[in-house]
């Protein structure tokens, strides 16, 4: 389990202007890389580019296979991008958690027992499963969105400020669950954060995104 993610000279341009300098790095199974940089430096866009959600130039490889070889939906199921502002389809939390298991790219099926277990570990009540997803608070939504990705057991997690709406207690629980997946499932994570301490807690590796034309750290 786990796969090596290689990003090679990846860049995104809007019109003729590159949003950030071409980025290259590797992420081994079980590694966490914190992605930091000033607002507007393109951190979220970099994650979206890795997930192949926006047109980009450069290469992304998963165990040396291209997204095209793997097939884009299958690739994205293995390299999941979790948006900072969670989005849900109309329906209950449980339906939202189960949703991705109905896609053709999925080979596993939804395990409600596991979902309940993980829900409690995030400090959420099991009763939440029956709630309509659009009635969730931002903090609840953020954790449900993370859980939705974790349940799919991806090889790589692309997390965009995954704890930005959480208080310290729930932040710690959430970080613990992420790290458990990283260590237990050999999943790797690229985490956008503004908090240097969070980067430390995730293991200390940091990738900096500067403004275009400015040398990277």
């Amino acid at each position: 389990m786990g796969a090596r993610l290689r990003v090679e000279r990846l860049s995104v341009s809007f019109g003729a202007v590159p949003l950030f300098r071409a980025q290259s790095f590797e992420l081994e199974p079980g590694a966490v890389l914190a992605l930091i940089g000033p607002s507007g430096s393109g951190k979220s866009t970099l994650l979206r580019a890795i997930a192949q959600l926006v047109p980009s130039s450069g290469e992304v490889r998963l165990d040396e296979e291209s997204p095209e070889q793997i097939g884009w939906p299958r690739f994205r199921r293995r390299v999941i991008y979790v948006h900072q502002q969670p989005a849900f389809v109309p329906g209950s939390v449980a339906e939202n958690l189960a949703r991705a298991f109905s896609y053709r790219s999925s080979s596993s099926s939804f395990n409600a027992a596991e979902a309940s277990l993980q829900l409690e570990r995030l400090g959420l009540e099991v009763g939440l499963l029956a709630r309509l997803a659009h009635t969730l608070s931002v903090g609840e939504g953020q954790r449900i969105a993370l859980l939705r990705a974790l349940l799919l057991r991806p090889d790589v997690l692309l997390l965009d400020e995954p704890t930005s709406a959480l208080d310290p207690e729930h932040r710690d629980k959430t970080e613990a669950l992420i790290l458990e997946h990283v260590h237990g499932q050999r999943c790797s994570a690229l985490v956008v954060t503004h908090d240097p301490e969070q980067a430390q807690r995730f293991g200390g590796s940091v990738h900096k995104l500067g403004t275009p034309g400015v040398a990277d750290g």
Binding site: A51, L53, P73, R74, R76, R77, I80, Y81, V82, H83, Q85, P86, A87, F88, V89, R99, A100, Y103, R104, S105, S106, R148, A149, L152
Partner: peptide, 22 residues
């Protein structure tokens, strides 16, 4: 308007048709 929902579905492995269907 629902761009984020459509992209969320794509980001979790939906094919374009699966994401566009609703």
């Amino acid at each position: 308007r629902d761009r984020s929902t459509v992209e969320m579905e794509l980001a979790h492995g939906a094919s374009r048709w699966e994401a566009a269907q609703p």
